[in-house]
Design a binder for these strands. Sequence first.
RNA 1: GUGCCUGUAGCUCAGUUGGAUAGAGCAACGGACUUCUAAUCCGUAGGCCGGGGGUUCGAAUCCCUUCAGGCACGCCA
Length: 563
Amino acid sequence: MNIIKQIENTIEQVILSSLKSCIKKQMLPDIEVNEITIEKPREKEHGDFSCNLAMIIVKQAKMAPKKIADMLIEQMDFKETYIEKAVCAGPGFINFFLNSDWLYDNTRYILNNPKIYGQSDYGKMQTINVEYVSANPTGPLHMGNARGGALGDLIAAVLDKAGYDVHKEFYVNDAGNQIDKFSKSLEARYLQEKLGKEKIEFPEDGYQGIDIIDHVKEYIKNETTDLVNVDEKLRQKMLVEYALPKNISAIQKGLARYGITYDQWFTEQSLYDSGAVEKMITYLIKKGHTKEYDNALWLKGSAMNSEKDEVLKRSNGFPTYFASDLAYHYNKFYERKFDRAINLLGADHHGHAMRMEGAMEAIGVKKEKLDIVIFQLVRLLRDGEVARMSKRTGKAISLDDLLDEVGVDAARFFFNMKQSGSHLDFDLELAKKQTNDNPVFYVQYAHARICSMLRILEEDGVKMDNNDVLDFSLLIEKEEILLMEKLAEYPNEIVISANTLEPSRMTRYVHDVAAMFHSFYNACRVKGVEKTLQQQRLNLVKATKVVLQNSLELLSITAPEKM
RNA sequence: GUGCCUGUAGCUCAGUUGGAUAGAGCAACGGACUUCUAAUCCGUAGGCCGGGGGUUCGAAUCCCUUCAGGCACGCCA
């Protein structure tokens, strides 16, 4: 149920059939209409919905837009619709005014279907693979992962509610160069621990983090096998096999704490084990998309709409990350047959994103099937200063540090307040504040306030289970109408978010709902008013609670009963 | 140098597919608690939508150009 879309469709029908009858009566010449826009006007005086048709067809009709609009309105039939009247305004807009029944009907629907309110069948159960975070398992999660996680999880949630069949996935980069670097770093730290720091040189491009040292210390403590005198390859292998699963499980735990769980953890190594990477490369060679020079195998720039060739296989014979990522996407579309794939990447990877998008046609995938969402990187601020290091640990601030400091609710909300394309400054002090300039508390407070109202009204002996009647006809105050309108927008907000893959509007939406409710609360009393009105307002309050609950759940933020 | 992203109120940002008088939050200022949570509400003020050109009935939105900031340009991932 998406009442906004329904009404838009109804209005479109009304307009088109009016146009038809105008043409039939030869008031207008034969007119071809490609696309008409029906939208909610900014100004309240411009009605509930507005349409631009009269202005679009000016040339075809050879008539002034206002004249066309008047003619169309004259021929309109509002029977069995919510439309009360239509008027021509401005340069030729047709503005539609609805009676309040649509709001009453929708509010009733919310109360009768609280669990599913917000869902729609817009996506027609298309299967979508959403891949996000996919952090390197060589260290802890950082702020980029934190933003990507909050964003990806909300995109997945919004798609799910909009009627898509969503598959959430984490791609584990457990193969390739960075694992090699990881194992050499571990080895160096291990030998440093065993033989003395000065005797062993640490690789220049190794991972400097303390976590590497922690791993080997732990290994020495817990494992009996001594690795000093074993073959170098074996030593590295043992250390990686010890540390990598620990890192992966730390990532899993960290994300779970953050409210993120996946349908699948897909490992890069499995693509090598199954021969999928080699197969991918062979396929590209066969298609003639490759060439060989400098001892390496390259994907031709022409195969991906680019000036530059890209290496698929290095001169040492190992495939690049690019090659395995192509195999991975081939797997998504051909082995697992997803209709679409969405892939979230930090802005520092946008070069890779463009390569991938460009290469889709070369691997036989329509480029519309892959959406890569690039999000800009995060700056942490403390008292207006850029904060890089954790005060407590002295290390780069990790997701766990962030959650310790501001909590899951604030983190999830703040990372989704801005569009992915904008740079995000995360104000640690603001996120912690329990005051009115912190939007998270503003929203949660609305929910807690409702719970408190319901408690007190119940103690007061007000009947709470009156859902069989559900009449709202006494709700005519401005604040009541605005609140109901806001509640009615919820399903469509989800659809728009799913469509644009920009779900930051959901945090704004839930903030708006809270604002409308607070206004209503201050303008319209529930306790102590006449019984019928009280019952209707009580039901509106309950419907508001449903929408707040559902949208907070969508954002993975708690809806507290008390604050 | 090339490519991608960003530029809107003092600050942080909205403004899906071009629409009517460009909107929120915070900060500022002035009001509202003996009454369901004042973590709230109501009001005031604040703008050459970076600059310049173009497209059209109509541009913050599309195109060109220019300026400023961020990021990326490896046989790393």
